[in-house]
Design a protein around this nucleic acid. Structure first.
Ligand SMILES: [Zn+2]
Length: 265
DNA sequence: GAAGAATCCTGAACGC
DNA sequence: TGCGTTCAGGATTCTT
């Protein structure tokens, strides 16, 4: 599913093709992904506007428009932003220069909103920003109580980490996913800080993890699934020890880990 | 504030 | 081949 690295990949892939282009018209096969306003209203407001820039914040894509409005896209689980259509296209943006941008979604968990100005999204810090220091991470950790994996996936705690990268970051840090955040030692917090960044950077470097639905802007699969340590590898040998990867359910989510590498205490 | 569960939604994978 | 069942889960919302 799309998390920070996948959304970043899409942003990088579509930006050169759509930046500076005018949205001439918009077509819809199913407009249920458009939230807050009707498709008619959306079409009326966005048509004729120009895409100045695309920014990623957490798992959101923010299209900055010349009017000052922002079109905000969240891919949910299976949402796609494409330069080439697939069979699940819901919205088509006809752009100047004969380009087209497609929004596709199978499960309709993806969302599109239109904001009058830069949206105030309730999100924690970006884990790959330089301002996200180990010191700040430690302060954040100390401010919360509860299960570490669930908190890592809380967008108000840190932005952009979902089920795949939470599992990978915890593996890299040697922390069992059932651990409580209060129980982490200073050394483990440092390892987790490194693990988060390493897992996310690996995802971006390999252009996303295509383990379920994710594909890039022209429908191509990412490569990061080949570099995962635990996610989706139940019963397979651990890449760091002689044990094998286990799977449990935690917070209604499938949670993969190595019982030998990831410690409870 | 935290924990747990329900909700949305439908294609893919699986079992017979 | 086809039908029914199970599974995938990000974010929100509700209850405890
Ligand atoms: Zn291991």
């Amino acid at each position: 599913m799309p998390e920070l690295p996948e959304v970043e990949t899409v942003k990088r892939q579509i930006s050169p093709a759509v930046k500076g282009r005018t949205i001439l018209s918009i077509e819809s096969k199913d407009s249920r992904n458009i939230k807050k306003i009707s498709f008619e209203k959306f079409k009326q407001l966005v048509s004729g506007d120009k895409i100045l820039n695309i920014e990623r914040r957490a798992k959101y894509l923010l299209f900055k428009l010349k009017s000052g409005r922002y079109m905000v896209v969240h891919l949910g689980m299976a949402g796609r932003v494409l330069l080439k259509p697939d069979k699940y296209v819901k919205i088509i943006f006809n752009l100047s220069g004969r380009k087209k941008l497609y929004f596709s979604d199978t499960r309709l968990f993806g969302k599109i909103w239109l904001y009058d100005k830069y949206p105030e999204l309730k999100l924690g810090p970006e884990p790959l920003e330089k301002s996200f220091t180990l010191k700040k991470f430690k302060e954040l950790i100390k401010s919360r109580k509860g299960n570490i994996k669930i908190i890592l996936m809380d967008q108000k705690f840190i932005a952009g980490i979902g089920n795949i990268y939470a599992a990978e970051a915890l593996f890299l840090a040697g922390i069992h996913p059932k651990r409580r955040i209060e129980s982490l030692t200073d050394s483990e917090i440092s390892k987790l800080y490194q693990g988060i960044q390493k897992a996310l950077k690996s995802g971006i470097m390999h252009k996303g993890t295509s383990v379920t639905d994710f594909v890039g802007a022209i429908g191509e699969e990412g490569k990061n699934q080949n570099y995962l340590y635990v996610y989706g590898r139940k019963g397979k040998p651990c890449k760091k020890c002689e044990g094998s990867v286990d799977k449990i359910t935690l917070g209604q989510r499938g949670t993969y880990f190595c019982p030998k590498c990831q410690h409870m205490l």
